[in-house]
Amino acid sequence: MYRQLPYLQAIAKNHLLVVIFFENTELRELTDKVTTTTQEIFDKTIAQKFAYEKKLIVNELNKFGIQTILTEPQHLTINTINKYLEIKARGLL
């Protein structure tokens, strides 16, 4: 993310930039799963790490004024509409 951040900031200077991230639904299933074996615990921990890192990236971009959407693929349309309504309500457009 830090390699791309200068480019994203340059775009965001002149445009309202919204970056969309997709949640990996298979990883979420792993994180919600009840674990019993050592391998399952390992897999769950790695899945939680990936999900956490994605949320950190979203928060970091928000700090720089870049709008983000973190959504499951099947909820893309409704979350995009909600983000648009939020942007309009905040007077950013």
Rank of each mutant, 00 (worst) to 15 (best):
I69V: 15
T31L: 00
K44Q: 15
T31F: 00
T35V: 15
T77Y: 11
L93Q: 03
Q39R: 15
Q67C: 08
G91F: 00
G91T: 00
E53C: 05
N24Q: 11
L93R: 01
T38D: 14
L16E: 09
K88R: 14
N24R: 07
V34H: 05
K33V: 00
T71D: 07
T71F: 02
I66R: 04
I57W: 05
K88V: 14
K44I: 00
L61I: 03
F64E: 14
Y52N: 13
T38V: 12
V19H: 03
D43S: 14
T71Q: 03
K54T: 14
K13T: 09
A10Q: 13
T68W: 04
I57C: 04
F21N: 08
E72F: 10
G65P: 13
I41S: 12
Q67P: 02
Q9L: 15
L76I: 06
Q4H: 08
L61W: 05
N59C: 08
I78E: 14
K63Y: 14
K33H: 00
F21K: 10
I81P: 03
I57R: 06
T31G: 02
K88E: 09
K54G: 02
Q67R: 08
Q67F: 12
L76A: 10
L61T: 01
T77F: 11
T71P: 05
Q67E: 15
L85C: 01
Q4Y: 08
E29Y: 06
T77D: 10
F21Q: 09
I69S: 05
E29P: 01
M1Q: 06
V18W: 01
E60P: 01
H75T: 08
I66S: 06
I81K: 12
K33R: 09
E29M: 10
F21R: 06
T38G: 07
M1P: 01
A12I: 02
R3C: 06
N59Y: 13
D32G: 01
I11F: 15
E72Q: 13
T45W: 01
L76H: 05
L8V: 03
V19S: 04
K55H: 13
N79T: 07
N62I: 04
I41F: 10
T25K: 12
Q4A: 13
E40T: 01
E23F: 06
A47E: 07
T36K: 06
E53A: 06
N14D: 15
K13H: 08
Q4S: 12
L85R: 05
V19A: 04
T80R: 09
L76E: 06
I69C: 08
E26M: 11
R28G: 03
T38E: 15
K13Y: 05
P73T: 11
H75Q: 15
F42L: 12
V18C: 09
T77L: 12
I66M: 03
P6V: 05
A51Q: 11
A10I: 07
R28W: 09
L93K: 04
H15L: 09
L5T: 04
V19P: 01
I87R: 00
A51P: 01
T31K: 03
I41R: 15
N14W: 08
T77M: 11
L5K: 07
K54I: 11
I78F: 05
L56S: 11
V19Q: 02
V34S: 08
K13W: 02
L93T: 12
F21H: 11
I11T: 13
T31A: 10
A12H: 04
D43Y: 09
Q39F: 12
I20Y: 01
Y84H: 01
F50Q: 07
V58W: 04
I41N: 11
I46S: 07
Q67I: 07
F22D: 03
T77K: 14
T38Y: 10
